[in-house]
């Protein structure tokens, strides 16, 4: 058995099917995409090679592309600085909730189970300017001046989208940390308590550092999620008003499927890959630190 497994030919044969599928559905399309990004293809007629024209347009003359990128970073930043600290804190606090722990755990995860379509549409209703729950609530408690055109004004729309995306993703972020917290052996807790550590000290000095691998993975996942953000935005604002909530994926979709600039859209998708790879590499580098065994 051992000899068979160390035989290079066997390894190759066993890897081949998976690798072939992977190659066919990942690498080939990426290269096809790369090819079309050098054309002015409109999806139907014959195309011409235009060299780097699409990339030049995108990087130098397309403010919407940069806005989409900025929005992705804003969302990633919000995940990193707001959603994840909250999720870590909630995961830590939940251990002290006794009997309510199980119920709370389920409730917190509900937004992640409901289809994104439903929750996005729900938030559109809640945030609707004239008849939405939020504005009506503000009216009811006498805060009418706080009423906003939550999704219709460009400055509020992006804030609303970020809020909803955080709300939708909270369950998963929380779940990852919660399992992380639960995975820390009880002996460490006991040892710390014997040494007189308070709950605060226990959580900040012991649990938090041990959570680091989880945090690292979660943050990378969160950033990737921020960059590929599509459904929520598409369902809530379609990137509008005036492109203020455009994200890379929605912009790519719009260029390819509404405006028929397939060549251009492919250039966006290629840059999209590059940005994702760069961000992942950067985050990996930042988080490269061993915690040790426990």
């Amino acid at each position: 058995m051992h000899r068979m497994m160390s035989d290079k030919r066997t390894i190759f044969l066993m890897m081949a099917p998976g690798f072939a599928v992977f190659f066919a559905i990942v690498f080939i399309p990426v290269f096809v995409s790369l090819f079309y990004s050098f054309t002015d293809w409109d999806g139907i007629s014959a195309y011409r090679m235009v060299g780097l024209h699409n990339y030049r347009e995108l990087l130098l003359h397309d403010p919407v592309f940069w806005k989409a990128l900025r929005n992705a970073f804003l969302l990633g930043g919000a995940f990193l600085l707001i959603q994840h600290p909250l999720a870590v804190a909630t995961a830590m606090i939940l251990q002290y909730c006794g009997r309510a722990e199980k119920a709370l755990r389920t409730i917190l995860f509900i937004p992640s189970i409901i289809s994104g379509f439903v929750t996005s549409k729900m938030w559109v209703q809640i945030l609707s300017t004239q008849f939405g729950l939020l504005n009506r609530l503000l009216d009811a408690v006498g805060l009418s001046t706080w009423r906003q055109d939550w999704l219709g004004s460009s400055s509020w729309a992006i804030a609303s989208i970020i809020f909803v995306a955080m709300w939708q993703g909270f369950g998963y972020a929380f779940l990852l940390y919660y399992t992380g917290v639960k995975g820390i052996p009880q002996d460490l807790h006991e040892a710390a308590r014997l040494d007189g550590a308070t709950a605060w000290q226990l959580n900040t000095r012991i649990v938090l550092p041990l959570l680091q691998p989880v945090i690292r993975t979660s943050i990378i996942l969160a950033f990737i999620a921020a960059f590929k953000q599509m459904d929520t935005v598409y369902l809530m604002t379609q990137g509008g008003p005036d492109n203020s909530t455009q994200f890379l994926a929605t912009y790519l979709y719009q260029k390819a499927f509404s405006i028929n600039l397939y060549g251009y859209a492919n250039a966006i998708s290629v840059l999209f890959i590059i940005v994702c790879l760069l961000v992942t590499a950067a985050l990996n580098r930042m988080g490269r630190q061993e915690v040790g065994e426990f």
């Binding site: 559905i25 990942v26 399309p29 990426v30 096809v32 995409s33 990737i224 960059f227 590929k228 994926a249 790519l252 390819a256 492919n266 998708s269 999209f272 890959i273 994702c276 790879l277 992942t280």
Partner: peptide
């Protein structure tokens, strides 16, 4: 991330 883009492509 590659897969995502792959799907589009």
């Amino acid at each position: 991330s590659l897969l995502l883009v792959g799907a589009v492509s």
